[in-house]
Amino acid sequence: MNIGIILAGGIGSRMGIVDKPKQFIDIYGKPIIVYTLETFDNHPEIDYIGVVCLDEWMDDLKILLRKYEINKVKWLIKGGMSRQESVYNAIIAISKDVNDDDILVIHDSVRPLVSHKIISNNISSAKQFGATDTVIPSTDTIIKSLDGLQIHEVPNRSELYIGQTPQSFKFELIKRAHETAIESNKLNSTDDCQLVLDLGEKVKLVMGDKLNFKITSFDDLLLLKAIIKLGKTEMV
């Protein structure tokens, strides 16, 4: 079984929006989270979906699921105080319904242009290797500075990648990674793959896409609007 876990527990603080989280912002009459959910709902390999959501927005989410006929959502899960806690809440919520070898495809709700190909490649890789991260090669030179004032290192660009989501795992592995992190009092990780690496396990890479960007600023919103308006996304 392949389960999409959609993380929608953020409040969009970096965008300075106070009336609603960014995942609920309308783009041409449809909230960003709906674009994301529709892609997972329409994907033939995704069996069920769990959505991690802010408690105060849960009723709004239920209305959207009915309105847009998102039928694969099986679990609605209360978000935590951090990304790590939100993912672990999802793991606990679905644990009675899944097997150790089932695949969790964990994705940010504010990456609405994820393609079916990326999701399929995640599932295939996670089934084979246990843990998978979606990345794109870094096309810019990355500068490392320890103080924000001067260059301390210029890493080799050919070795650098930009992380995206989905991040996908066999259920037993990601559950063990989170429980080990909690036991070690590591409680605020922003990356599930790091928790798996901390176990000494390997994480394989699959290629993402520049269109699979995360909405974090108003510039991102403008770009998303332009892409959708021009119809240049190919959700296959």
Rank of each mutant, 00 (worst) to 15 (best):
E45W: 14
K210D: 14
T139Q: 06
Q194M: 01
D191Q: 01
S124T: 15
I63E: 08
S124W: 11
E201R: 10
I123P: 13
R83H: 06
T141N: 15
D102K: 07
I142L: 05
I94N: 13
K225L: 05
T216H: 01
K74P: 08
R66D: 15
L64S: 04
L76W: 03
I91K: 15
T134F: 02
S109G: 14
Y48G: 15
E179M: 11
G50Q: 04
K67V: 11
K144C: 12
V105A: 07
D220L: 01
L64A: 05
L187C: 00
S217D: 07
L224E: 06
D102V: 11
M207C: 09
V18P: 03
T180L: 04
D55Q: 14
E38T: 04
S115N: 09
K30N: 05
E85H: 13
L197S: 11
N42W: 05
I94Q: 07
K186A: 08
D26L: 07
P31L: 13
K22A: 02
I142W: 03
V110L: 01
V18K: 05
S145T: 12
K144M: 13
K210Y: 10
L197C: 09
D41V: 01
N185G: 04
S95R: 11
I91C: 15
A126T: 08
V114C: 02
W75D: 04
S184G: 14
S115E: 01
S86L: 11
D191N: 08
D41G: 00
A8W: 00
L54I: 05
I46Y: 14
S86A: 04
K175Y: 11
W57K: 07
I70Y: 09
L222M: 08
K225G: 10
R66H: 07
K62V: 02
K175Q: 06
F24E: 02
I106W: 03
D60L: 07
Q84I: 02
V110A: 00
L195W: 12
I17N: 07
T139I: 05
I182E: 15
C193D: 04
F169N: 01
V34L: 13
S158R: 11
D47H: 05
I143W: 12
I228R: 05
Q167T: 06
M81T: 10
K117L: 02
V203W: 06
F169A: 03
G79F: 00
I17R: 11
N156G: 04
V52E: 14
Y35L: 04
G231R: 10
S158Y: 09
S125A: 02
A93F: 07
N185C: 06
A90E: 06
I143R: 05
V206D: 13
S217V: 01
